[in-house]
Design a protein around this nucleic acid. Structure first.
Lengths: 188, 188
DNA sequence: ACTCCTTAGAGACGATGCGTCTCTTACGGA
DNA sequence: TCCGTAAGAGACGCATCGTCTCTAAGGAGT
C-alpha cells in the first residue's frame, strides 16, 4: 500500500474535507466521512486539527487562499466598490449559508482578521477616489468605510434566496456613495 | 403527585427552557436538562415542539413577548433611532452571541418577520421626522431605513466583546442621519 | 360515583458522531 | 540494516438526539 505523508497527505485531507463540505454542508460533515473519503483514519485528522471546525477552516483557506485578493482599481469608485462586493457575494455563494452559519456558531474568532482587511481595502479604494477628485475627502469614519461590505454580509447571512442583482448596486448607490461623496441619497 | 396540564404545564416547560438557555447557552442546552428542570419527561417536550430549536424559539417568544414593543416617539429623530438601537442592543445582551449564532445556524427562517417589522418601525419614525420638518422627505429606500439596525445586528453578531457606547451614536450620526437628511456625513 | 380516555411523568432504547486509544506496519533517516 | 515516527484502520466510551413503552393521574361523560 502506498502510504501518503507530509504535505501531500495534508492536501488530500483538506481536499476531502472541502468536497465533503460542498456535498453535505457544514452541519452534516462528519470526521468519519472525511477520513473515509481520504482513505485514512480519523486519527490522522485529529493529529492535525483539534476538531471539526478547525479542519473546515483549514480546508477553506487551502481551497480559496487569501480571503481577499488584490485591491480593485478600475478608475471609478463605484466600480471598485462593486467589484469588492461582487467578490464577497461570489465567495459566499460557493460556500452557502449553512457553512457560514455553522462556522459562525462554532468559531467566533473567525471574523476580526477579515474585518480589518476589509477596512483596509475600502480605505485604499476611497483614497484613490479622493486623489482622482471623485470625492471631496478620503477622511471617512471606519463605520462608513465598512458600511457596504457589512450590510452585504448581513444580507447574505439572513437571505434565504440568492441575492437579487439589484442588491449590490443599491448598497453602492443608496448607501455607500451618498455617505462618502457627501451628497443626498437618492429617494426610492 | 400534582400533575400539571395545558397552559400551566406549557409555561413551566418554557420557563425551564429559558432558564437552561441563560445558564448553559444554546450549544449546551439539552432536552434532558430542560425536562429534568421541569420535573417531567422528554416526551412532554417532543409532544409540543419537534426539536430543540423550536423549543428555544418558543421559550424566547414566551419570555420576551413581541420582538419589538411600541414605536418610540420622542420628538427627535435622533433620539427615536437611538431608542430603537438601544432596545436591540439590550435584547441581544440578555441573549448572548452563543444563542443567536446557534439559532441562526439551525433556524434559518427566523429572520424575515423581524426584518419587515423593523422596516415598518423605522419607516414610521422617519415619517414623523418628516412631518416635523426635521428631514426633507420620508421617501427613503428600504435599505437606508434598515441600514442602522442591520449594521448594529451585524456588529453584535461578530462582536466578541460588549459593544462600546459609541457604537450606537456612531451608527446614527455617521450613517443614518446623513443618509436621511441628505447632508454630508461627518468626517472622522 | 364509576368508567374511560387522554396524556403526564419517567426512563429504556437505538442511532449517530464526537474525540480518544490501541494496534500493526510502511517507510524515511541514520 | 535498524529504528522511530506516523499512517491506516477501527474499537471504544461518552453524550445526546429523537422514539418508544409503560404506568397511573385526573378531567369528561354518564
Amino acid at each position: 500500500m502506498e502510504r501518503r505523508r507530509g504535505a501531500e497527505l495534508e492536501a488530500v485531507l483538506l481536499d476531502a474535507a472541502w468536497d465533503e463540505l460542498m456535498e453535505s454542508g457544514y452541519a452534516r460533515l462528519t470526521m468519519e466521512a472525511v477520513a473515509a473519503r481520504a482513505h485514512t483514519g480519523k486519527q490522522v485528522l485529529y493529529r492535525r486539527w483539534r476538531n471539526r471546525a478547525e479542519l473546515v477552516v483549514a480546508a477553506m483557506r487551502h481551497r480559496t487562499g487569501s480571503i481577499i485578493g488584490d485591491i480593485p482599481d478600475t478608475g471609478s469608485l463605484r466600480d471598485d466598490v462593486l467589484a469588492v462586493l461582487q467578490r464577497m457575494a461570489d465567495r459566499f455563494a460557493t460556500l452557502g449559508p449553512d457553512v457560514v452559519h455553522g462556522l459562525l456558531a462554532e468559531v467566533p474568532d473567525l471574523d476580526p482578521e477579515v474585518h480589518t482587511r476589509m477596512s483596509g481595502v475600502m480605505a485604499t479604494i476611497v483614497k484613490h477616489a479622493a486623489e482622482r477628485g471623485e470625492i471631496p475627502t478620503a477622511d471617512v469614519p471606519d463605520r462608513v468605510l465598512t458600511a457596504a461590505t457589512n450590510l452585504l454580509r448581513h444580507e447574505m447571512l439572513f437571505a434565504r434566496d440568492p441575492l437579487p442583482a439589484s442588491a449590490l448596486t443599491s448598497l453602492v448607490d443608496d448607501i455607500f456613495l451618498p455617505l462618502v461623496s457627501g451628497r443626498p441619497g437618492r429617494s426610492s
